[in-house]
Write a protein that binds this DNA or RNA. Structure first.
Lengths: 107, 107
DNA sequence: TCTATATACCTAATCAACTTAGGTATATAA
DNA sequence: TTATATACCTAAGTTGATTAGGTATATAGA
């Protein structure tokens, strides 16, 4: 489970890979997370459509090996959003660390 | 937002404070998180009741300064659960770090 | 040949956990 | 007398996931 961070994960990945298609994203996340995060299709595709409808992603459909692939890439706004969301996730993680390690609160 | 980690936060706090009441938990979390996490009552109280019904918490009602306080403390199973959930949250955070800092994947 | 697995997309129904918004009540500070 | 803090509670609505279903092609194995 990615706990509301799926959009952030997608935006962050796309900020590093120019363009990716849905299935590729699930595999990349699985690889980067050492098998711990397995994005479900029922979460992924609605998320991609949501991000596109918000103007953060643009799509290009290509046929590769007789199969359709929908490549997504960040728009200019998507790039901004990626930076904002990534910063928010980092802050969230730092805050969680404070709760887990209360002794380090005043470090 | 605490993104599905409220139960973990409560269990972890109670593992360090013996007994706490609801309002106290919200204040303590606000303090520890430097104001960033503001637990809503609509989330807190159902969570406390849920954890109690699962046998992880036990309650003692006291009247202090003419106001009721419901003090919660971990049961034996609650203590176990606290350890499990805390470890899960730590692992989740580590996994998120991998996604945020892909260069550190092989450290 | 048939079946399972991988690749590649999609949606609808369901579930869990949150926010919002309402309620009750006492104590204190402006 | 009004707002804020303390202290508890629940119901309705929203969000974002899972589960489970669908379509279709390619490949590996029994």
């Amino acid at each position: 489970m990615y706990k509301g961070n799926l959009d952030t994960i997608i935006l962050k990945l796309l900020s590093e890979h120019n363009k990716m298609y849905g299935y590729e994203i699930t595999q990349k996340v699985k690889e980067l997370s050492q098998g711990k995060i397995n994005i479900k299709e029922g979460a992924l595709y609605p998320a991609l459509h949501r991000l596109k409808s918000k103007g953060f992603l643009e799509v290009e459909t290509l046929k590769v090996d007789n199969r359709l692939r929908k490549y997504y890439k960040l728009t200019k706004n998507g790039n901004k959003e990626s930076i904002v969301k990534t910063a928010e996730l980092e802050e969230f993680i730092n805050t969680m660390q404070l709760l887990l390690n209360p002794k380090f609160n005043f470090k």
